[in-house]
Simulated assay, not measured.
Amino acid sequence: LSLGLCLTVGLSNKVLVFPYETDFSFVTLIPQKEMELRAFTLCMRVATELQGERQIILFAYRTADYDELNVWREKDGRISFYLSGDGVFFHLPPITTFRTSLCLTWESRTGLAAFWVDGKRSTYQVYKPGHTIRPKGTVLLGQDPDKHLGDLEVMQSFVGEMTDLNMWDSVLSRSLIQAWHYGHRVPKGNIFDWGNIEYELNGNVMVYHDN
């Protein structure tokens, strides 16, 4: 996989459509600041028709040797995330053909991690206190690179729609996460801000007006 320099900026009122399973379609995102993170909030709106026992990658950030931050729907339907090693798993309402607001928060200081679905928080789990996410990697939507920008698998690919992906280098409050869910104004993501996001399309991903 070569990273070209044909970056496009900004996806306000746009949705990314991944129309079918491939091992070559993905979107590369360029963070606004280095992702050397000791806390974060990651939010996106996501919908898929994929059902049954099928892994689906929802977000992948990889450095040369590690999957730094990967978010998955597992084969058993649980939602998980991994910080370079074993993951942590949550029983959440299923992601369906209707759009779900999905946020993930984590902080190194306590290790507290939670998912938020349509403005409602899961129970906290303690995961990797003291860990730091490493910088200088690559963020992909739609595929999971098993090595640095390589080894893509059809049966892990994302199929469906993604929009409004934002990421902050802190844990947002309940009121801000709920405000984001309802489409109210919140502070722009300082790692990813959908309105000013730098991205590159690869394969058959479509950018469409969000009706």
Rank of each mutant, 00 (worst) to 15 (best):
S173F: 10
L104T: 00
V88H: 01
F81D: 01
D169H: 01
L141K: 06
G137M: 06
S175Q: 10
V171Q: 13
H181P: 08
N204H: 11
G85Q: 14
N204S: 12
V205G: 01
I79Q: 03
Y124L: 07
D146W: 11
R78A: 09
Y127N: 00
P94E: 01
V186M: 08
G142M: 06
T110I: 02
G160T: 00
Y182T: 12
G119V: 12
V88W: 02
W180M: 02
V117P: 02
S157E: 09
H91N: 15
D118H: 14
F98V: 05
F90D: 07
Y124G: 13
R99K: 00
N202T: 15
V186Q: 07
S122I: 12
V159M: 02
Q156I: 04
R134C: 02
N202W: 00
H181E: 08
F98C: 13
T138Y: 12
H91P: 00
A114M: 03
F158K: 06
V205M: 03
H184A: 10
G137C: 12
E161D: 13
H91A: 14
D210G: 04
K147P: 08
L112P: 11
K136R: 13
P187A: 08
F98K: 05
F192P: 05
P187I: 09
R185S: 15
P145W: 03
S101Q: 03
E198K: 15
H131N: 03
C103P: 00
P129W: 01
P145K: 03
R174V: 10
T97N: 14
Y199V: 11
R174F: 14
T110E: 05
Y182N: 08
G130T: 02
K120D: 05
N204K: 13
H209A: 08
N202M: 08
F89Q: 09
W180I: 14
H148E: 13
W168Y: 13
V126H: 02
K128R: 15
L140N: 03
P187Q: 15
L104F: 03
G137I: 11
V139E: 07
G85L: 08
W106C: 00
G195P: 02
F115M: 10
S157F: 14
W168H: 05
Q178Y: 06
L140Y: 12
F90R: 02
L92Q: 04
R99V: 15
E161V: 04
F192L: 11
W180N: 04
L201K: 11
L165N: 02
N196V: 05
Y208C: 08
D151S: 14
G119E: 05
V186K: 07
F158S: 11
F158H: 13
Q143S: 11
W106T: 03
E107D: 08
S80P: 12
D193R: 08
N166L: 01
A179R: 07
N166M: 04
V186Y: 11
F192E: 05
